[in-house]
Nucleic acid binder design. Structure first.
Length: 373
RNA sequence: GGUAGAAUGGCCGAGUGGUCAAAGGCAACAGACUGUAAAUCUGUCGGCGAGAGCCUACGUUGGUUCAAAUCCAACUUCUACCA
């Protein structure tokens, strides 16, 4: 019970609108997926996520395995029930932790040895373990266990990691999941075009219902990332969803959609939100800045989210400055609303055959630096 | 009234002759954050100057010394204890 339907394509760009059918409901793409690593999108309740339009959220294999343990989540009736979210869930495999916990892990052919970030204890995760954990979590979309390579790297290291990622993808594919779980393969190959193309071809031979694009947004500049997307996306199957993992900045989302990406996730809206950085149609805003102390306008006057309809910059700045937890909530809420609805707007524009204009307007208005009033 | 002790940068607080514009913390200001080891991290934080540097500063005033936040005297204020 997993299907991708292509609904509309932009005649001028690679942008496309579609639908993903999952056991927990339909997802309209392009879609931004809030990250809920530890079985919670930080500071947000599921009803609030519904209110702002979230269709699917992420959970993380590594974190939930470490705490509370996959068995507990399974005993609770699966991740959906455990956290009270009755819509689709995608779980990341732990592959990103191979990258982010690079000081705490050792990679071998069989798998990855992690030293727990919680207490230093040693754990070995093989692709099969990642599958078993995600099976217990019961997510709708399961990600293959991959190696996300840091940047910069050598062509040789990238190739070795890519080859290993493909071998691991095969092992993941061969592992019996729940009947209604869809497993996505993950394209690696760092910033080497040929490796990227080879990787997607070989993953296709193994065969997956969807494909993640990993190993981007790891410190490379935007042009480099777009260069990889430019060569990779045309090589990806049209009838399968494409998921650009860990991205990202609003401009990255639009440029990703332009090239044919269907799914995105990123910690940015919640992490930056907790740190007092909010998104507007004109760019990023550090709402903690002094210039907002007496600014009684909403974060983004053009935004119709709950936060912008009810609170001012001055109030949110006050909350942040006072260390009040509500600032983290309101900023996260607004940022999530911003990205989720940016993708909804993009989708509508694609369907209405006006995506190029939509893209141009957005890119012209959105300053990549910090926006000051 | 007596005795003892204390006064340091926006605040708290180290420092008891030179390497002190003065540790550290807080506050403040700015920046960063892309499949979350992040309600975190980094930088700035007396004034002027691009800079070398100059000026003003450790309660007040005066003194000792080549040199004082540091030593001495008086004064002011505060704290504790005793009357």
């Amino acid at each position: 019970m997993f299907e991708y339907k292509l609904i509309a394509e932009c005649p001028e760009t690679g942008a496309r609108a579609g639908e993903l059918i999952t056991p927990h409901g339909k997802i309209e793409t392009p879609v931004f997926m809030p990250v809920g690593t530890q079985a919670t999108v930080k500071t947000m309740t599921p009803p609030e996520l519904e209110t702002l339009g979230a269709q699917i959220i992420l959970g993380n294999t590594y974190h939930l395995y470490m705490r509370p343990g996959a068995d507990i989540v399974e005993a609770a009736g699966g991740l959906h029930r455990f956290m009270g979210w009755n819509h689709p869930i995608l779980t990341d495999s732990g592959g990103f932790q191979v990258f982010s916990l690079s000081d705490l892990r050792k990679i071998s052919e069989d798998g990855v040895e992690f030293r727990s970030h919680l207490n230093g204890s040693k754990h070995f995760m093989r692709p099969e373990d990642s599958m078993e954990i995600q099976k217990k979590l019961g997510s709708d979309i399961v990600m293959a266990f991959d190696e996300c390579v840091s940047w910069p790297t050598t062509e040789k290291y990238s190739r070795d990691a890519m080859e290993r990622t493909i071998r691991w993808a095969k092992r993941c594919r061969d592992y019996p999941l729940k009947e209604n779980q869809a497993l996505f393969g993950i394209v690696q190959g760092s910033m080497f075009e040929k490796q990227r193309i080879e990787c997607i071809k070989r993953l296709e031979e193994i065969g997956f219902p969807g494909y993640g694009i990993g190993g981007l947004s790891v410190g490379e500049d935007h042009d480099t990332m777009y260069r990889i997307l430019d060569v990779l996306l045309p090589e990806m199957p049209k009838n399968k969803p494409r998921y650009l993992m860990g991205v990202g900045f609003p401009t990255n989302l639009i440029e990703g959609v332009t090239r044919g990406v269907d799914m995105f996730d990123c910690v940015l809206p919640t992490r930056n939100g907790r740190n007092g950085c909010v998104l507007t149609r004109q760019g990023r805003m550090n709402v903690k800045n002094l210039i907002y102390a007496r600014d009684f306008t909403p974060i983004d006057p053009t935004c119709d989210c709950y936060v912008c309809k009810n609170y001012t910059r001055a109030y949110i700045r006050h909350l942040y400055t006072a260390g009040e937890i509500l600032s983290a909530r309101l900023c996260s809420w607004h940022n999530l609303h911003f990205l989720v609805n940016l993708m909804k707007d993009a989708r509508q524009a694609i369907i209405e055959k006006r995506f190029p204009t939509f893209r141009r307007n957005f890119m012209e208005n959105f300053m990549d630096g910090v926006y000051l009033k």
